[in-house]
Design a binder for these strands. Structure first.
Lengths: 189, 189
DNA sequence: GAGCATATGCCAACACCTGTTGACCTTGCG
DNA sequence: CGCAAGGTCAACAGGTGTTGGCATATGCTC
């Protein structure tokens, strides 16, 4: 898709804009993050943002592009399933601000919600199909797992509630792992 | 605190503004809900909103005033604890848009996040103290329960994900009840 | 019932902020 | 040198919360 020559003189600026945008979107959401604030943080003029990314929406689309990289169930011992998955998701949320951005924007912006649904449908549900025994159950299992993971991420990384943010990662994993495991493997409540 | 005479001629208008505000805030969040849109839906002039509630923030403070009414643990049979609590929270989220509003705004607006923290600290943690055996553990238990409930509410009532919204209430209760119960009663993961 | 004070409501405008655009310099490379 | 890409500046059109002035209608006092 990107057929432009690999080295442009403005690549540094583009990268600076993207980095600033990631930061501002994650911090302030879509409406809260103004083009002027992003440009200011990147140290350039607001008009450059538009020239390089077409529009604010175009920039946002570039920023929010996430691969969940859910591990292959075949390579996980059955008794470690919950622990491995929860650990993976925590790392995902802590890696960069993309998921925080996605959630922040998805909650207020219809287009953002659409994008969140896309991630759920294209990555989480298929993973649930690989994990569970009955593929028809996958959407429900994915929903249950997502509810627990999203809820903890919301408290811990978005709202930054004291008790949630201060829990050690090991504690979070220890408590959530059995829940997630049950949602995936148990045939009924 | 409210010493004004009980019957003002403008009470109907005030109520209309509050109702419209509840709706718009729940739907569009704090920034998305404009004073003009609220006034339009209430069928009056935008200036009336300011005159009656001082400012947009004042109106929002009036709208977002929620009592979780968490039931008394002494009146719940131990084996019904999870079911009763999950059912209670689902009804709370479905009753009116207040919790949806609170979540939508809390995610993007710092003041909204503060208010959400207040609800958590003043209502959820004390409840966890009454429920659990070790009061020192209450913040962590409240966090775990909140993570599961908030996550499901997020998918079901805010983002309106298909699979989450279409699950029957009974199904949600059946799946979440054991989780919530474990978070409250189990001394360790 | 008449007159008046006051509450109620609308209109127009304000100052500010938003995304976006076009004209204009400036730098670096062929 | 010439020319295109990189970058800045100022301005635009539209939307925001908020304010003051002006019309109207209501309810109270005589």
């Amino acid at each position: 898709m990107d057929v432009t020559p690999p080295h442009r003189r403005s690549d540094a600026t583009r990268a600076a804009i993207l980095e600033a945008a990631r930061d501002r979107f994650a911090q302030d959401g879509y409406d809260g993050a103004t083009v002027r604030a992003i440009a200011g943080q990147a140290g350039i003029d607001p008009s450059m943002v538009i020239r390089y990314f077409g529009s604010k929406e175009g920039l946002f689309a570039r920023v929010v592009d996430v691969a969940l990289d859910i591990p292959d169930p075949a390579r996980i011992p059955a008794e470690d399933l919950g622990r491995v998955l929860v650990t993976h998701f925590l790392e995902l949320w802590e890696r960069d601000g993309v998921l925080v951005t996605l959630l922040r924007v998805g909650v207020t912006n219809p287009a953002g919600a659409q994008r969140l649904r896309g991630v759920f449908r294209d990555q989480l549900v298929p993973a649930a199909e690989r994990f569970g025994h009955d593929p028809a159950d996958a959407p429900r299992r994915a929903t249950l797992v997502a509810s627990q993971i999203l809820g903890m991420a919301l408290l811990r990384y978005v709202l930054k509630f004291g008790p949630a943010a201060e829990m050690s990662r090991a504690d979070v994993v220890a408590w959530l792992a059995p829940t997630v495991e049950r949602y995936i493997t148990s045939p009924e409540p």
